[in-house]
């Protein structure tokens, strides 16, 4: 039995025949669409490494079944900025050394994009820290992450060259 869904991923429509309803959105992105920028850290919604935007809102892709996402618009780290350009958040993460090993980084950046879109970041770094606390970073790059998100939230600039 297959189950047909349509997803728009990073602006590209995909018509998918799911042969297994157990497939999570995370595994669909990684294993069937080859978008491995989104990471699996816990598969339980506890670490945030798999954060993507679904219809503009941040979501732990490991907690969502792919079959439930029919019609959704999904943005992953690969689609945050046009090819060869950096999103202001990406540039800020590099500038503020907001990562070390890099494994949680795509999820951090997508979560930050969602946080800024939610309008909940304000100018208060404490609120940014709180709003980013669903994204664990075992290297402890937290100060850089908070500063990068604050800088990007205040930035009026568009993308920069990669």
């Amino acid at each position: 039995m297959t189950f047909s869904i349509t997803l728009t991923v990073n602006g590209t429509p995909h018509h998918l025949a799911l042969d297994d309803l157990r497939v999570t959105l995370l595994d669909l992105l990684r294993d069937r669409l080859g978008l491995t920028g989104t990471k699996k850290g816990c598969d339980r919604g506890q670490c945030g490494a798999c954060t993507v935007l679904v219809n503009g809102r941040r979501l732990n892709a490991c907690l969502a079944l792919a079959a439930q996402q029919d019609g959704a618009e999904i943005t992953t780290i690969e689609g945050l900025a046009p090819e060869g350009r950096l999103h202001p958040l990406q540039a800020a993460f590099l500038e503020h050394d907001a990562f070390q090993c890099g494994y949680c980084t795509p999820g951090q950046i997508m979560s930050a994009a969602g946080l800024i879109a939610e309008g909940a970041d304000g100018a208060d770094i404490e609120r940014i820290r709180e709003g980013m606390s669903g994204n664990l970073c075992r290297c402890g790059a937290y100060r850089g992450i908070a500063r990068a998100v604050a800088a990007a939230a205040q930035s009026e600039n568009g993308e920069t060259e990669a």
Binding site: R30, T38, G102, P106
Partner: peptide, 21 residues
Amino acid sequence: HSRLDGIAKITGAARYAADNA
């Protein structure tokens, strides 16, 4: 200097072991 592997990490291009298929 900012990390030379930084662009790969912030764009999702960095290939970790489990990304290989």
